[in-house]
């Protein structure tokens, strides 16, 4: 895997995830307070509150403020939502307006054949 968070924090996060079964660790990277950034923040907050209430950690990071994280977390696009846990690692890019896609991606609702990618 490409992302290499410090082992300690990964282990911690993993243990935490084991303890609190089904806890989602999410990081949202945005590039300043653009309309699309604001939309993304609003969208993920809505999803979390509605579907993951009480079992998620969401961190919003402005890559302009912490550009060094770009390399560390393999951020290319903005906005980018990283699902660190539960495994597997998943990236959601865009303003997170496609709620159904996110719910499928986060394994909150099951996949439907229409979502299968050909490539």
């Amino acid at each position: 895997m490409s992302d290499k968070p410090p082992i300690k924090s990964a282990t911690e996060a993993f243990e935490k995830a084991l303890n609190e079964k089904g806890t989602y660790i999410l990081k949202l990277f945005v590039s300043g307070m653009t309309p699309s950034s604001l939309r993304a923040i609003q969208n993920i907050r809505d999803i979390c509150q509605k579907h993951l209430a009480g079992r998620y950690e969401l961190e919003v990071i402005d890559i302009y403020q912490q550009p060094e994280l770009g390399k560390q977390e393999q951020i290319i696009a903005a906005p980018t939502l990283l699902k660190k846990l539960p495994a597997p690692l998943q990236q959601f890019i865009g303003d997170l307006s496609n709620t159904e896609k996110i719910l499928v991606g986060l394994n909150i609702i099951p996949k439907t054949p229409a979502d299968e990618r050909k490539d």
Binding site: S2, D3, F29, S31, S36, R39, A40, I63, Y64, P67, E68, G70, K71, Q74, I75, I76, A77, A78, P79, T80, L81, P88, L89, Q90, Q91, F92, I93, G94, D95, L96, S97, N98, K101, I102, G105, R117, D119
Partner: peptide
């Protein structure tokens, strides 16, 4: 800087830009 891109890990969920790459590049 190694930019890792794995299509299987990426879901596009709306409008986006490549500002992340720009920021990384600018930082470098």
């Amino acid at each position: 800087d190694y930019v890792h891109i794995d299509r299987s890990e990426i879901e596009e969920t709306g409008e986006f830009n490549l500002e992340g790459l720009f920021v990384r590049l600018g930082f470098a």
